[in-house]
Structure formats: C-alpha cells, structure tokens
C-alpha cells in the first residue's frame, strides 16, 4: 500500500469510528431525553384527555429539555444507518443492493424517529389548550416512534441477509442472527393499534418496553459492528497482504487481484 492510500484508509477508519461513537451518544441522548420528558415509563394509552393534559402541565420545562435531547438523539440515528451502509457495501461489493436497501429504509425510519420528538414537542408547546387536542398530538407522536416498527424490521432484515447470505469474514455471523431477533422483537409493536390496556397497548411490555430496549441494544450493536469493521482490513486487502508477505519480491501481475471491480488503487499496488 502506498503512503497516500494508507493515510486515506486511516482517515476512513477514523470517520467510521466517529459514526460509531455518534451512534453510541444517540442511545445516551434518547435514553436521558426519555427520562427527563417522563416518557419512561410511558403515559398510559388508557388515560383520559384530562389526565394526559395534567401530565403535560407538570414539569413542562424539563420535559421540553428532554424532547430537545431526543430530537438530537433520534437524528443521530442516521450515523448508524450510514456506518452500516459502508460496512454492508464492503461485505457485498457492487452493486451493493442490500446496503442501498438498508440505507434508504433506515433514512425513512430516521425521519419517523425525528417526527416522534417533533410532534411530542408540539404537544408540550401549549399545555393550556383543549385536552383532546393534546391527547391527539401525543398519540400521533407516540405512533411515530412505536408503530413505525415496519421500516426498522426491513432495515434489520436487510443487515441480517447481507451478513448471513454472503461468504464474509468482516462481521461475525451471530450479528446477522441478532438482527433477525431485533426484527422479531419489534414485530408485535404494530398490534398496539388494537389495545388500550395490557401488554399490547402503547405503554405495554411488548409495544413499549421490549421494543425500546430491543432498539437500544440494536443501536449499540450497530455502533459496535461499525467500530469493529472499521478496524479490520477488507478481505481482499488481507489476501493481498498475505501474498506479499509470502512472495515479497514477486511482480504485480502475480498477485491476487480483487474480483469485485472496485477501483481502489490500494489493492493493486506493490510495496516500494
């Protein structure tokens, strides 16, 4: 590898690490934000509009601060989407179908998470209004975060198929199974539409607690995967390095070349 491509690889690894750290910070911000906004545990789906109005009337400044933190945290989810795109693209090579699917659906999901913070911000903005309007806004905001399981299920499955469906050494296979499990644990969330109490209502164990912690663990796992992959060379580079160690003086033509058609000059250079 030339000095220039070495430097570029090091810079890329640093940016990837930065994305991983951002993802980790996002988890912290969302968690603290939820606590400050008193959304953890969640207000009950069965509460009357008046009861919910009372909730929004109390500690409202602290709640607004929490919502601002959530706004930052949820937006930072895009760091994990971008980081995972790079990791999946390295696994797949062109035409990077699953990496693209993951990135597009992940971006859509990020918008929904941001809307969760934005719409609950509107709910907290004028607590003196008609309680039924506050309830409608709160419900709407809540649905953005918790019935939005579908895009995240698709995102997790895209990651799983990419990790499990390719012969690859960049990420361990259990990470693929973990992503299917994430999807499975998010799945019951969509049934919150039918319940106002019990484990499937929007404050219930399967539609709030399990998805919330599932999502948090998923974000941490993605941050880890991005960091882990950033510290490992591409398998093609590894093969090249091995061949160079075995035959340090051999000519460029005799070295194994990457077959995925990428134009990274680092792969075809002979050591000086």
């Amino acid at each position: 590898m030339s000095i220039a491509s070495h430097q570029r690889a090091a810079a890329n690894a640093r940016f990837q690490t930065a994305l991983a750290v951002t993802g980790f910070l996002a988890v912290v911000l969302i968690f603290v934000g939820l606590l400050l906004a008193q959304y953890l545990p969640a207000p009950y789906a069965s509460w009357s509009p008046e009861r919910l109005d009372e909730f929004y009337d109390s500690h409202n400044d602290l709640r607004r601060l929490g919502i601002v933190m959530m706004l930052f945290g949820t937006t930072m989810f895009v760091a994990l989407v971008s980081g995972m795109k790079v990791v999946l693209a390295r696994i797949e090579g062109p035409p990077r179908t699953l990496a693209t699917l993951q990135a597009n659906i992940g971006a859509a999901g990020t918008v929904l998470l941001m809307l969760f913070a934005m719409i609950t911000a509107v709910a907290a903005y004028r607590p003196e209004r008609n309680p039924e309007i506050t309830q409608a806004l709160h419900d709407l905001g809540w649905y953005m975060a918790f019935i939005s399981a579908v895009p995240f299920i698709i995102q997790a499955l895209a990651i799983a198929v990419c990790v499990l469906g390719n012969k690859q050494t960049l990420l361990p296979r259990w990470f693929g199974y973990l992503n299917i499990s994430v999807a499975v644990l998010l799945l019951p969330g969509v049934s919150m539409l039918f319940f106002h109490s019990g484990p499937l209502s929007y404050h219930g164990i399967l539609t709030y607690w399990v998805p919330l912690f599932d999502f948090g663990i998923w974000m941490l796992a993605m941050a880890w995967a991005i960091w882990y992959a950033s510290r490992r060379p591409d398998p093609a580079d590894e093969a090249l390095a091995r061949a160079q160690r075995a035959h340090p003086l051999s000519l460029d033509d005799e070295l194994p070349r990457p077959t995925d058609g990428r134009s990274d000059d680092a792969r075809t250079e002979v050591p000086a």
Partner: peptide, 16 residues
C-alpha cells in the same frame, strides 16, 4: 438467539 427471542415474545403474549 433468534429462537429464544421469539419464544420470549410469545411467552409474554401468553401470560398477557
């Protein structure tokens, strides 16, 4: 991992 996660979800559903 997947099987256990799945059984965990359904166990909560059955209990509910």
């Amino acid at each position: 991992i997947l099987i256990c996660a799945d059984l965990f979800v359904f166990t909560i559903l059955f209990a509910g």
